[in-house]
Design a protein around this nucleic acid. Structure first.
Lengths: 344, 344
DNA sequence: CCAAAACCTGGGAGCGCTCCCAGAACGTTC
DNA sequence: GAACGTTCTGGGAGCGCTCCCAGGTTTTGG
């Protein structure tokens, strides 16, 4: 008996592949084949291995698999720090849920990374260092070169939301253009004559795409698409300020399409403060269909985008590429749908 | 020249530690020591290594480190699937931001895992399999045994929000009791005489702790703490139903403390529908201070909890334990603060 | 009936790192 | 200057797996 001066500390005598092999009466190689679902294993051996695995509660050591094999069994979700503050919480959580849902059952881990100002080089080094098989990037700002850099390094990358500065990198986005156009057409169909819009910041594609869609819808009705106010960011405050601006420029406006529910909340407050009744005096349509849309006063008519589906689709696209599928679509647009409530 | 029939596929001839050693004119061991910040390295050697690292853009292979060393340089954040739907998005995103903030600079990765109904055993196998050094668990439901299981397996674990079924496992939580008590006292100080509360589901500590705090505050003012309605979950709908129930039982109530802003939104709707003016007829105080609190109509007075700080503190506690610090507090309570707006 | 093809199996090198051990270089003290 | 500590350095085993290769066993087909 050796006298352990120190307690053995969190030692974990994990079952190793070799022990499974011994228990199943086969070789390491065969166990490895079973685990990786390779062909050329007799059903008898396969079954014995499966039984040994469950019996021993074996869980393969990822580090060893990564080191020995060529893939990491791991993908990264990169969120730009500022972005996560802005396009914000509900969006992010939804995407995450979708990613996880799609990953369920696959033996692939998700590591989360926030890209900060300074450590971009670190981030790129890490990602390109073979620690992950692919990357999902969301809430990009402006012309962020990150996706391009990653793609050029040969790392499979999928962007969530059309990237402004990354031509050629595959992306998945909601169909912001058509959603916004539908909103504009709906307001027209309601008989509104002076329809304004509050657009998101100019450096984000989501804001620009929704603005374009609105413009198209308005122009098709042979109306002037001149009542445009730009919000500086996706916040209620910014939406409130933009609404005040619009009201000053055109006191007689009778409808407004707001490019994000979160900004619409602010717009609603401004309208209320100016004594405008919604929807009687001014009809309001938002975008996103966050939870807050249904609890706003009055409940907000909005264009619904399925954020969870966005996460799922991004993941599917990435996994398909990792699986070696060819001729994958360079981008994917997810349909939106209108949710009619009270505000319009 | 060998003729490659196949393209070399995403080959990444990463710089290895050995190359850094050669470039710096030292041995592998010395480079390893520098990377891990160990003592007993001459400043000359240390500098040469640092220079070689930056010059070659070297990033150590995590898989190899994990395999060779004893730690994974990686912690997991486990979210229960249902929980993430309920206590929901803003909470989750806030915690995540805190965790990341605290992890910044440390060479520790964050992997995200959602625990689903069926795969609990898989989850435990994975977590206890040495793939991670420690675990952060949030949005636990009822008597979930997960934290206990992990802790018993010797895996450092920290829970976010007081766990109901995991005595002894360290946790970090907002001071729900005192926050709720402050809310009750504030309503009393306003001269309200019939003060009700809407409590969260009975199977979550957060709901019970806030209820206890409210009861204490009310009792201390020698008032009856009998107007309690339980919501079935943290949703506006559930809050609306509970409010209707309270109004039926006591039409003359003049204040209500709602145990979550998200439920308060529903309560506000019900009050409005019943023709009650807020705050004139009924004062309302919420809890959490989500973004929606400030944009509610009327803007909601609420008890603020700092969710990001929660994430940071959990992470700090876990990392401290991993670093071998002793006599760490078994639990940590984060202060709350009241935000006075219009509703009370 | 024998050759070729298909199926199945085990052995063993090596992925890139950490950590232990042995030893060199430098004091410091009697 | 011998004996000791302290600081620094390099060599090499081995972490647990995958993947290649060599070989055995069965099936197929001419």
């Amino acid at each position: 008996m050796t006298d352990a001066v120190e307690p053995p500390k969190a030692r974990r005598p994990n079952t190793r592949l070799e022990e499974v092999a011994r228990a199943a009466g086969v070789s390491k190689s065969t166990v490895s084949r079973v685990i990786n679902g390779e062909p050329y294993v007799s059903s008898k051996a396969r079954e014995a291995v499966h039984q040994a695995i469950t019996q021993l509660g074996y869980s393969p050591n990822q580090a060893a698999r990564t080191l020995a094999g060529s893939r990491a069994n791991c993908i990264a979700l990169v969120v730009s720090e500022q972005g996560s503050r802005v396009l914000a919480d509900p969006f992010f959580a939804g995407v995450l849920r979708g990613v996880n849902a799609e990953l369920a059952g696959k033996r692939v881990q998700l590591v989360l990374m926030m890209s900060k100002e300074g450590d971009e080089q670190d981030l790129v080094n890490y990602l390109c260092g073979g620690h992950v098989d692919g990357v999902l990037v969301i809430s990009l700002h402006g012309q962020d070169p990150l996706p391009r850099t990653l793609a050029d390094a040969g790392l499979p990358t999928v962007v969530g939301g059309r990237p402004l500065g990354a031509g050629g990198v595959p992306y998945v986005d909601s169909d912001n253009f058509n959603g916004a156009m539908e909103a504009a057409r709906y307001l027209v169909s309601l008989g509104r004559r002076r329809i304004a819009t509050i657009a998101g910041p100019r450096d984000m594609a989501v804001g620009m795409d929704r603005l374009s869609g609105w413009k198209r819808g308005i122009s098709q009705a042979r109306m002037d698409a001149d009542l445009v106010a730009y919000a500086t960011d996706f916040t209620p405050e910014s939406g409130a300020a933009a609404m005040a601006d619009l009201l000053r420029r055109e006191p007689a406006l009778d409808a407004v399409f707001v490019g994000a529910d979160i900004m619409a909340l602010g717009a609603l407050q401004t309208l209320h403060a100016h004594g405008k009744k919604v929807p009687d005096d001014v009809a309001v349509v938002g975008f996103d269909d966050l939870m807050i849309a249904s609890t706003a006063v009055p409940p907000l008519t909005t264009i619904r985008q399925d954020v969870e589906q966005l996460g799922r689709t991004m993941t599917w696209r990435l996994m398909a590429e990792l699986a070696g599928e060819e001729n994958l679509p360079p981008f994917l647009l997810l349909p939106t749908s209108m949710v009619t409530r009270v505000s319009a």
